[in-house]
Each structure stands twice: as C-alpha cells, then as structure tokens.
C-alpha cells in the first residue's frame, strides 16, 4: 500500500493505476496507456522565476542535464534546480541529487518550467540533509494543461536537521508531486507545506509521506488548495510514527476550497502511529468561500468577482507567509498572485 512505484517511462507496465491505493485519485495508467516516445532536445531560454536570487544552477532540459546533476552544499548556498520541458507528445526523465553537508544552509529553489504540449515528464530528486543542516526548498510548478508530470522527492533528514518545503502547483492533465521525507535521526524538524491553484480541467496531486523513525522529531504541514471549473485537487498526506519514535510532534492540516459546481477535491490525511508518547493531529476541511464575507465585501462596494479573488488570495497566501526566506517568499507571492 505504501510501496513506492518505480515508474519507468519506457515501460508502460510500471505505470500505477487507481487500483493501486497510493494512486487511487491519480490514475496514471488511464492517461498514459503506452510508453511515450523519448523527447528530443530543448533549449534553455528564459532565466527562470528565481534568477534574481542568484546562486548556482542545476538545469535539465527535456531530461538532459545542462552541466552537472549533483550538488553538495556547504556553508550558506543557494541552488536553483530547473526542470525545463519543451516537447510535444513525448516523454523524458530527469534525476538530480542534492545534499547539504553538516551545518550547511541551503536555499533550494526548484522550478518546473513547461512549454509545448501533451508531454510526459518524470523527475526524481534525492536530497540529503546532514546533521544540523538546514534546507529550505521552494517549488514552483507550471505546465501546459495537457501535460502529464510525476515528480518525486526523497528526502532524508539527519539528527537535528531542518527541512522546510513549500510546493506551489497549478496542475496539468495529471500532475503528481510526491515527497517522501524520513526523520532519519533524532530531533529533526520538518515543514512540508504546499498549495494548489487549479483552473479548467487541471489535476494536481500533492502526496507526501513523512516517516518518523527516531525520537523527538517534529513535523508541521499546511496544505491549501483551490479547485475551479472542473479541476480536481488531490491531497494525500501520511505521517508515520515508527515504534520507538517517542516525543514526536506531528501536525497536518489540509484545507480546500471548491470554487465551482463541478470541481472536485479528494483528500486522504493519514496518521499511522506505533509509539505512544506522541502528539499527532490532523485537520481537513473542504468547503466553499464564506458567503457572509463575500456579502460583506460587496456591501462595501467591492464587485463580486474581485471579492472572490481577494478572499481566495487571502486563503492561499497563508502558505506563502510560512516561507521563512524573504526573497523566496516574495518571488512565490508574486508568482502566485499573477496566477490568481
């Protein structure tokens, strides 16, 4: 049930379907019956949304590395990890490895920049956070509405390490952003936030598994989402507290707005707990915009559409506000506001 699927884009038999519990709401097989032909080359055009924040860059264009694929941070560093897709009907795979050495402080700015149409992208990231290191990962995902993409991140956090992530997804035909985080040693701190803003018939799936393997770890997760038109938002969050991981403090919240008659939200927040000295909680709400707030704003002269947009923004922005790095937070805020 919790097994990771080794998806291989060249082998259709590895594509999970809704019959696989972990892919219940994102039926990859339904959208992708056959292995796509491999993508050709793509050129790296625009500098990407995080360009102004500087730092090093690891870039993939249609799965091909432009330069290095691995990065090891020491001291205080910024890395822009860019997955660029520009293909029509073809598929590509990219894998990156990033590590933060003990005591390092890494700002990892990840962008999925898609152009073309109906491509299939599969990205994997392995990320090690060494003892006492601190990694902040901010992910912006923008892809054509008919693209299919599956992104996996496997994050290992050592003793006293801090890992924070914020994923901002705008959906695609099927867009799955999966994060698997292990509290590998004691006293790690994890923040695993995300938001999705979906228009048209887009589909975004934020799936996360946070595994507390050692004691005194803390996890905080806030996911918010809006589904408009006929879009479908999926959140699957699992927190596992293994035997012996006492002193764990884990909190998860998922809150979604259904902004149209025909949109859909599917949510599955799971707590799997094998230790007793823990504090774990999750909250999950799905609903419409507060009618009384809308009414109030209209009464004050704000047109209905504008009021709706403002309230939606206020609802989502809470996730952005939790990004600790100011520069990254402001880029994310602008990026999101432009898409509201």
């Amino acid at each position: 049930m919790s097994a990771t699927f080794a998806i291989d884009l060249t082998d259709a038999s590895t594509f999970p379907s809704r019959r696989d519990e972990a892919w219940k709401y994102s039926d990859l097989k339904r959208y992708l019956r056959e292995a796509p032909a491999p993508s050709g080359t793509a050129t790296v055009g625009a500098p990407g949304p995080f360009y102004d924040l500087g730092g090093e860059a690891v870039v993939f264009a249609n799965g091909r590395a432009v330069g290095v694929t691995d990065f090891i941070a020491s001291g205080e560093q910024t890395l822009r990890l860019r997955y660029i897709s520009d293909a029509v009907g073809t598929g590509h795979t990219a894998s990156a490895r990033v590590a933060a050495r003990a005591g390092a402080k890494l700002l990892l700015l990840e962008t999925h920049e898609g152009a073309g149409s109906a491509y299939v992208a599969h990205n994997t990231l392995e990320l090690d956070v060494a003892a006492g290191a601190e990694v902040t990962r901010v992910v912006l995902v923008e892809e054509p509405e008919d693209a299919i993409s599956v992104s996996e991140a496997h994050v290992k956090v050592e003793a006293g390490g801090v890992y924070r992530q914020t994923v901002i997804a705008t959906g695609a035909r099927l867009q799955r952003i999966e994060t698997r985080i292990s509290h590998f040693a004691q006293g790690a701190q994890v923040q695993a936030d995300g938001l999705y803003l979906l228009n048209g018939s887009r589909h975004a799936d934020l799936t996360s598994v946070v595994r507390h393997m050692e004691h005194d770890g803390a996890t905080s997760q806030l996911i918010k989402g809006v589904a408009r038109d006929t879009a479908r938002g999926v959140f699957q969050g699992k927190i596992v507290v293994e035997r012996g991981a006492d002193g764990t403090d884990a909190r998860m919240g998922h809150h979604a707005l259904i902004a149209s008659e025909r949109a859909e939200i599917d949510a599955k927040p799971e707590l799997i707990i094998y230790a007793d000295d823990v504090q774990c909680a999750h909250g999950n709400t799905v609903g419409a915009l507060d009618e009384s707030a809308l009414f109030y704003m209209q009464q004050r002269g704000v047109p209905a559409e504008e009021a709706r947009a403002l309230l939606t923004q206020a609802f989502l922005i809470e996730v952005i506000d939790r990004i600790e790095h100011e520069g990254a937070r402001e880029v994310a805020r602008e990026w999101l506001t432009a898409r509201l």
Partner: peptide, 9 residues
C-alpha cells in the same frame, strides 16, 4: 462546490 466538510483527528 456547496459542500462543507470538516475532519479532525
């Protein structure tokens, strides 16, 4: 869209 669902655990 008009559903109001709340869950806490």
């Amino acid at each position: 869209g008009s559903a109001q669902l709340e869950h806490e655990a």
